[in-house]
């Protein structure tokens, strides 16, 4: 083995080792967090935790049913507002956004994407909570939707851009009008990617706390009335974790585990959706 060849082998081995170590570090963080959550939270998970509402301060027992349902309602509503707007914007940007308007929309989306969520929360408070004279789940959903739209728009755009140009031309050459080509061929081909982007976006806002403090406020009681303040898991965790009681800390850990589980579930569903799609169409 010549000197040069030896050096190449050594360099290759070193670099492979380095990236392996870095990947391990990245995974380690996730494993530690999950492990710690399970260690501290799993023991508090029981039927009551999911089905009961919080009990008055000082008593033991109770659960966070109000927060779980609240998260479901607020995130669900946010998705209902945010997904169509986000996906539509992304489709527009990818298919028709080559002009100046497209540039402006893309720029605004990027700025919004970088805006801290607490700032969005303050705006939601100014524009929704104050005029409506009260905190509400609806205002919380609107804030989360606003957070989600630019994210979804940009991922949708990226996914639609991945659709090969030849597929567009095939449809156009068969006599498809441009808008139908966009919807029926391009969007449908990019569907797996778009759905993944949407699920990731929903997972991302499901853990948001800051904007909800200004809007949904939190509520110790169970409610499904979206014009009233509503509890959510992140907010519950924030309250319990910063509180003085051991019982609260215990519930905070368990809530964090449930929230993490929900987010993971969305992520796994996204993966599964892609695989289904690829299995069927590729």
């Amino acid at each position: 083995m010549s000197g040069r060849s030896l050096r190449r082998h050594v360099t290759s081995g070193l670099m492979t080792g380095l990236v392996a170590a870095l990947s391990f570090t990245a995974v380690l963080a996730l494993v530690l967090i999950l492990g710690d959550l399970i260690a501290k939270g799993a023991s508090s998970l029981n039927w009551d935790f999911f089905t009961k509402n919080p009990v008055p301060t000082g008593q033991t027992g109770g659960g966070v049913a109000n927060a779980i349902v609240g998260t479901g309602v607020i995130v669900g509503l946010a998705a209902l507002f945010g997904l169509p707007v986000g996906v539509g914007t992304g489709l527009y940007l990818a298919e028709y956004g080559s002009g100046r308007l497209g540039w402006v929309v893309r720029f605004v989306a990027d700025v919004l994407n970088g805006t801290p969520s607490i700032v969005i929360g303050i705006f939601a408070w100014t524009w929704l909570v104050r005029p409506m004279k009260g905190y509400s789940a609806l205002a919380g959903s609107a804030a989360l939707a606003a957070l989600m739209v630019p994210m979804i728009a940009r991922t949708t755009e990226e996914m639609v851009r991945l659709v090969p140009h030849s597929l567009r031309e095939a449809a156009l050459a068969l006599g498809y009008p441009r808008w139908r080509t966009s919807l029926r061929v391009v969007a449908r081909t990019a569907l797996a990617g778009i759905v993944t982007g949407c699920l990731v976006g929903v997972a991302r806002i499901a853990g948001e706390t800051a904007p909800l403090i200004f809007t949904a406020l939190g509520n110790q009681n169970f409610t499904t009335n979206i014009t009233q303040p509503m509890q959510t898991l992140p907010h519950q965790i924030y309250e319990y974790a910063t509180g003085p009681f051991e019982e609260w800390h215990r519930l905070a850990w368990a809530s964090a585990l449930v929230l993490m589980g929900l987010v993971l579930l969305l992520g796994v569903t996204a993966r599964w959706a892609i695989r289904q799609r690829h299995g069927a169409a590729r």
Binding site: E169, A170, L172, A173, L174, G175, A281, R282
Partner: peptide, 20 residues
């Protein structure tokens, strides 16, 4: 253009079947 492209079919350099 839509009616025209019905009368004038096109086959491209790379085969481009739809994912269907």
């Amino acid at each position: 253009a839509v009616a025209l492209r019905r009368e004038v079919g096109m086959v491209f350099q790379q085969p481009n079947p739809f994912p269907k």
